Simulated scan of single mutants.
Amino acid sequence: MTVADLPKIELHLHHEGAAPPEFIRQLAHEKRIDLSGIFKSDGSYDFRDFAHFLSVYEAACEVLKSPEDFRRLTLAILEESAANGVVYSETFLSPDFCGGGDVHAWRDYLNAIQDAADEAERKFDITLRGVVTCVRHFGPEQAKQSAYCAAETAGDWITGFGMGGNEGVGTQGDYKWAFECAREAGLRLTTHAGEFGGAESVRDAVRDLGVERVGHGVRAIEDDDLIRELVDREVTLEVCPGSNVVLGLFPDFAAHPIARLRDQGVNVTVSTDDPPFFHTTMRREYEMLHQAFCWDAEDFAALNDTALNAAFCDDDTRERVKKRLERT
């Protein structure tokens, strides 16, 4: 068995961003929506930089207009994830894209997504949990509505709350109300930081929002004091190496700081972020990390242990996933 064949846990996956381009093209065809401008000639998503990526992402979401669309999308995502050895995944879901932030519509979308997740678990032996996210560049007021939707549906399946979007808009602290609302509902917290925002954005995320996980967080490598703080606070980074390379944060996998962060005691995990956009899969992430750092099965088992400990799921689910990991 190669390292790529090992079972895997993924904690950082954007639901709409995981939509296979052929799935989006098929929906667009069914609904007679012209999305030709967001695809390359080979059928893959076409974007120039991070800002343009966000525009293409939101354009692709234009065809996802009903709970049934999201049910079909969820099955497509989980079939692909399972084919790449993923046994447990957490997906970022935004009420802004699932019902426009209306809590009643959000419930309908969520029911459809959960129904698909249950079907996928029976078919593919993969477990999914949802982390509700607000979208940073939609602003703090809209984030409050997302947090309200999250709080109203918190439970065994919706287990976390976070924030994605453009790190250049506002500060982490601007969204404190939304995160406190989610925390009071019993949800566990993560947020994107330290991708384009620099090391200081990671510090702000940890101190101002009190998150236990940080999406990306790789710019922490620029600040030794911050690294020590992450270790002391036992914060886990949801690292997405392939995404970081494609978006130009680092020239290649060998230059990526995930190994240095891990060697300094930071809790790191591996995910794909928006896999079809960044031409990656969990198999490819494992293969590239193996090539870049000579990580072996023992290293990847340790990464999975870290991810399992950091997962936003209950103990029964954690034990079920642990047994899947131990099958190899």
Rank of each mutant, 00 (worst) to 15 (best):
R233L: 11
R233D: 08
E234L: 00
E234H: 13
V235D: 01
V235A: 03
T236H: 15
L237M: 09
L237I: 08
V239H: 12
V239L: 11
V239K: 13
V239T: 15
P241N: 03
P241W: 07
P241E: 03
N244P: 06
V245R: 01
V245C: 11
V245H: 02
V246P: 03
G248W: 13
G248E: 09
L249Y: 00
F250Y: 15
F250M: 00
P251V: 02
D252V: 02
D252I: 00
F253G: 05
A254F: 01
A254C: 02
A255P: 06
A255H: 15
P257K: 01
A259D: 14
A259F: 01
L261H: 04
R262V: 06
D263P: 01
D263E: 15
D263L: 05
Q264E: 11
G265E: 12
N267K: 14
N267Q: 11
V268P: 11
T269M: 06
T269Y: 04
S271W: 07
S271R: 06
S271H: 11
T272P: 04
T272Q: 05
T272K: 00
D273L: 03
D273G: 06
D273S: 04
D273H: 09
D273Y: 06
D274K: 08
D274P: 08
D274C: 08
P276I: 03
P276L: 03
F277A: 10
F277Q: 02
T280R: 05
T280A: 04
T280Q: 06
T281R: 05
M282A: 02
R283A: 15
R283P: 03
R283Q: 13
R284K: 14
R284Q: 13
E285C: 12
E285K: 07
E287Q: 14
M288H: 11
M288F: 05
L289Q: 00
L289G: 03
L289K: 00
L289I: 15
H290C: 08
H290L: 00
Q291I: 07
F293R: 02
F293H: 11
F293C: 04
